[in-house]
Design a protein around this nucleic acid. Structure first.
Lengths: 217, 217
DNA sequence: TTTCCATTGAAACGCGCGTTTGATTCTATC
DNA sequence: GATAGAATCAAACGCGCGTTTCAATGGAAA
């Protein structure tokens, strides 16, 4: 078992497949992505997917898992913030890293797109995705929202408000085709991520500060 | 030209196709919906789509157009509100009718789902959809937001805030699969539409009342 | 060198899709 | 009733897909 040569060529095709599959699944979605395109992009034979992964869905699941592992490491939820940060700072960090993950352009940030697509057109892999990644993230957001609501933080209200925050983030991904047609001159790119994060945070902070009190007409 | 018999049987197949196509396109999307399923549901021959509409995309475009025409009539943007309504009332009416259109369950409210799907997986029909339906709706929302912002209503801020409002609405449609897994016991149905509309309106009113001022910590 | 087995490769299979075909049925006109 | 044109029908076509097949390859063990 000459591990040296074996390890290089043995898992090489497998590795190249997963690396090629990520961006393609992220760009096209599970159904629209084709095994032929992935193999062409990876420079491997068409039969390699079925030989190494069994079928297309298993390659997709593997790619998704790998994406989940690496995704949060690259854009941590708290943005590396100290535990002493204020609620407003923590909220901004959450929103900013969320947008970076979902809207990242040039970089290998097809990962956010892959996750976003899985949420819109779920496969069997969504259940694990929710439990392993989304629920922890949502819990964290709920804790931030709860802190900002203070005494008004009833459980039902916390959940509704957390949804209101995250909905503003995913909107810029899900509705991109519409937004581009509504405002063709506007470029929703990484340069804009900070502006968007600033607005979403400000909007949400104002909402969380005011909701539950009676100050509107 | 015995119009009586002619009118009934002449356009009958065509009408049945469009009626069957609506829910199926709405449920499955343009690509995933099959001509075979639509024809089976309409009780017509497989070749009828190509005979009466040319191809699948044309049937889809016709269905979308008809949907746009009838959709707003059934759930008017202002909810039939008088022009003397306050900004808060107009915002609630907008949000509520929007949610009804998108989340309507039992009823023939596949129309909202059809439009929502077109926004996520656009076809060539999206351009007209944006110009004919979405842009007018967005303008109306902008005017409501502008009224609520008062003196702080700079154009860029108005657009961002209008997006923040509408994003909370579409979220409950786009992210339904995730929401159902996050809160399995919660039923996002028509009974809940009023609760959701109430929350989204309250959240947004508080945000619009506070944003631009300095009152948060 | 020979044997063996995991891996690769080219080709094809089976399927479902949108679409087309050509015969058949129906109905308004003569 | 005869006829022409529109509408319907069963059947098939061509295509791309995921998947399978089976021969060719090449390094490790004998």
């Amino acid at each position: 078992m000459e591990k040296e040569l074996l390890a290089k060529s043995d898992q090489d095709t497998r590795r190249r497949l997963m690396e090629a599959a990520g961006p393609i699944f992220g760009r096209r979605g599970f159904k629209a992505a084709t095994v032929r395109e992935i193999c062409r992009s990876a420079g491997v034979n068409l039969a390699a997917v079925n030989y190494h992964f069994g079928d297309k869905l298993e390659l997709y699941s593997m790619t998704l898992s790998r994406c989940m592992q690496g995704g949060l490491a690259r854009h941590p939820i708290d943005g590396g913030l100290s535990l002493t940060a204020t609620g407003a700072e923590r909220l901004y960090a959450f929103v900013h890293s969320f947008l970076q993950r979902i809207l990242g352009d040039g970089n290998p940030d097809w990962q956010g797109q892959l996750l976003a697509r899985e949420m819109m057109e779920p496969t069997a892999a969504l259940d694990r995705l929710v439990e392993d990644l989304i629920r922890p993230m949502f819990k964290q957001l709920c804790s931030i929202v709860s802190e900002l609501l203070g005494a008004r933080a009833k459980p039902a209200l916390v959940i509704l408000c957390a949804r209101s925050v995250v909905s503003q983030c995913v909107f810029y991904h899900h509705s991109r085709p519409v937004l581009q047609r509504l405002s063709p001159q506007e470029r929703i790119e990484s340069q804009q991520v900070q502006r968007l994060a600033r607005h979403i945070t400000d909007f949400s902070l104002a909402a969380l500060a005011g909701i539950g009190s009676e100050e509107r007409g």
